[in-house]
Every structure is written in structure tokens, then in C-alpha cells.
């Protein structure tokens, strides 16, 4: 096995299990083929999943970080969406492979004495690890879990486990609920974490207007890369300073390609975490796989972490 094969395997995840969590939600258990550790993550993190079709989708990690060789994602089938969730539901079987980037975290659980969690639909998946953490730390918490249809709402067993902490509310059965009333007057050092559809998140600043401004933290279901398709076609890397051009097979990180061509870039973690290998990008469109840049920083398309990232375009020009 060449160095390139070896390294490009490190972003490959095998589906080891599929678990139906509701009529429309399936949980996928993902591991490396050799069961090596996966990059660390914390509650609120998501990974970028690259599907066999080349579509990129973002899913919150909903498993247990004390199981370091395994990620879990929960996917709600959306027949009216862009096709990513349907592809996962209908085509991804145990033994199949996807690749991933990240994990990234724009929704970190900040320290507080108590938490109010508000989930809309599949937004529950981002909150599960937060609830586990609040329990671990012995902190007070409450969950409001909103959905339209009870049958579609996954992880309702939370209510059986924590009946005094969890309110499940399906609008089809019970109409609308006042979030402001549910929040009431929480203790001073409370944080509100919410994840769900745009309609829910838009209502929250108003519902939280009596609380300090820093209280509310939300995660949107956005997909900034919805239109990007990762190709496995070869691309070329131009090194601006030396003028060299290196041919890259598709689906290979830039560092691996350069190493095979005798050009080394200093790296450290090789997981897109530490930031050591950052390189300025002068032209081309980047296939970001790191855990460092947020969506806005990615969108500037001016720098990359070549130990994991690669190219969406046919040509990438680097300041090397």
C-alpha cells in the first residue's frame, strides 16, 4: 500500500450499523475500517459527510465521545430536500463507505450552572451529547422537544428516562406551545441551546428577550456546501513560488500528493486540527476537510489545511 492509499483511507468511514430511531430517522454508526481512533469532538460538533454521489452534507455527532473509534449521526429522511438524506436512507448499507471532514464545532456547550435545551425535530441529535454532558457534570437541565408528528420524532425515550426534565410536544396533537412560558424564569447562570428549523430559531430571540443577551445559542440546519459536488477526478496543484505543477489523483489530500512528489509541507496532527500546515491558496476552489475554519472562513477560499483538504476544482494554486 502506498503512502497515498494509506493516508487517503484516514477520511474513510464504514457504516457498521443502521438503527431506526423513528419512522423517518435512521442513526448511522460510522467507524474506520481498522477501528483506529477518530478525531476528538465535543458536544455541538458536526462532520461534513461526503456521500458516494459526491454530495456533501453536515450532520451533528450524536454519539458518545468516550467511544473514540466511533461516530454516530442521525439522519431524517427528507423527500423534498436535495437528495442527501434520501441517498443515506436508501443506499447506505452496513459495510458501505463514506468520507468525512471535520469534526467542526460552531455550537459549543459553554460552562453554565443550568441549561435549557430546545430541539425542533431532528435538531435533537445535536443536543443529545449536551444532555449527556450536563448529566455527567450533575447540572440542572430541561429539554423542550418540539415536532409536528410524534411518530417521526426520534429519541423520545428521553422522556421516559427523565420525565421531570423532558417535555415532548407534537403540534399535530397539541397545537402550538409558548416557549416563553416553558422557559419561565430560569436560574441566573442558565444557557439556552436550541437546534432546529429556521422557523423555530427565528422565534427564539423574542422568547428569550427577558434573559441576558449571551444566554441563547443556536445551530441552524444550513448547508453552505449544498451545491458543491466532490469529484474523484484527478486535479493539479501549482506551486506558485517554484512554478512546479504536480498531478494529483482525485480524492487525495494535498499533503499526500506533495509528499509523493518530494515536496514536503510541515504538518503535525495530520487531522486538520492543529493548524500547523496552513497554506495560502491563490486560485482554485478548496474542498475543506479541516476542523478549524468556520463557514465564513471557508467561504473566503484563501487558505487551506493541506493535511486533510483537497480540491473541488481542476486546479489549485498554492503559495508554496
Amino acid at each position: 500500500m502506498t503512502a497515498v492509499d494509506n493516508a487517503s483511507n484516514s477520511d474513510q468511514l464504514v457504516v457498521t450499523q443502521r438503527l431506526d430511531r423513528s419512522t423517518s430517522v435512521t442513526e448511522f454508526v460510522l467507524e474506520r475500517r481498522d477501528r483506529r481512533r477518530l478525531p476528538d469532538w465535543a458536544p455541538g460538533a458536526h462532520i461534513d459527510v461526503v456521500l458516494p454521489s459526491g454530495k456533501i452534507r453536515q450532520y451533528s455527532l450524536c454519539g458518545d465521545r468516550w467511544a473514540p473509534h466511533q461516530y454516530r449521526i442521525a439522519v431524517q429522511r427528507d423527500d423534498l430536500g436535495g437528495g442527501g438524506s434520501v441517498e443515506l436512507h436508501t443506499e447506505l448499507k452496513p459495510g458501505d463507505t463514506i468520507s468525512f471532514g471535520g469534526p467542526r464545532n460552531n455550537f459549543r456547550l459553554a460552562p453554565a450552572q443550568s441549561y435549557r435545551f430546545i430541539a425542533g425535530g431532528i435538531g435533537i441529535s445535536a443536543l443529545l451529547p449536551m444532555i449527556a454532558q450536563a448529566n455527567l457534570l450533575g447540572l440542572e437541565w430541561q429539554l423542550l422537544y418540539l415536532g409536528r408528528n410524534l411518530e417521526r420524532m426520534a429519541y423520545q425515550e428521553l422522556q421516559e428516562r427523565y420525565p421531570e426534565r423532558v417535555t415532548v410536544h407534537a403540534s399535530q396533537n397539541a397545537g402550538r406551545i409558548s416557549i416563553r412560558e416553558w422557559l419561565g424564569s430560569p436560574p441566573d447562570d442558565t444557557m439556552v441551546y436550541a437546534c432546529g428549523p429556521e422557523s423555530l430559531l427565528e422565534a427564539l430571540p423574542e422568547a428569550c428577550s427577558d434573559l441576558p443577551e449571551t444566554t441563547l445559542r443556536t445551530e441552524r440546519f444550513t448547508n453552505t456546501m449544498a451545491d458543491a459536488i466532490v469529484s474523484s477526478e484527478p486535479y493539479e496543484i501549482k506551486l506558485q513560488r517554484s512554478g512546479r505543477v504536480v498531478e494529483a489523483p482525485g480524492n487525495t489530500s494535498v499533503v499526500d500528493v506533495l509528499a509523493n512528489a518530494g515536496v514536503d509541507v510541515i504538518t503535525s496532527c495530520s487531522q486538520g486540527v492543529c493548524g500547523t500546515c496552513e497554506v495560502d491558496v491563490l486560485a482554485g476552489e478548496i474542498d475543506h476537510r479541516d476542523a478549524i475554519l468556520d463557514d465564513d472562513e471557508r467561504a473566503t477560499n484563501t487558505c487551506m489545511f493541506p493535511c486533510v483538504s483537497r480540491s473541488l476544482s481542476e486546479r489549485l494554486v498554492l503559495d508554496l
Partner: peptide
């Protein structure tokens, strides 16, 4: 030599936060 991967800064969750 490519010294990448040396452990002078550690590795993992506690890798030297001031390495840069």
C-alpha cells in the same frame, strides 16, 4: 528529513496550544 509528526508539542486534545 520531514520532521512532521514529532511529539515535542504533544499530540491530541492537549497538544501545545501555543505552538504557533
Amino acid at each position: 528529513r520531514d520532521p512532521s509528526g514529532h511529539l515535542a508539542f504533544g499530540s491530541g486534545a492537549h497538544q501545545c496550544v501555543g505552538q504557533h
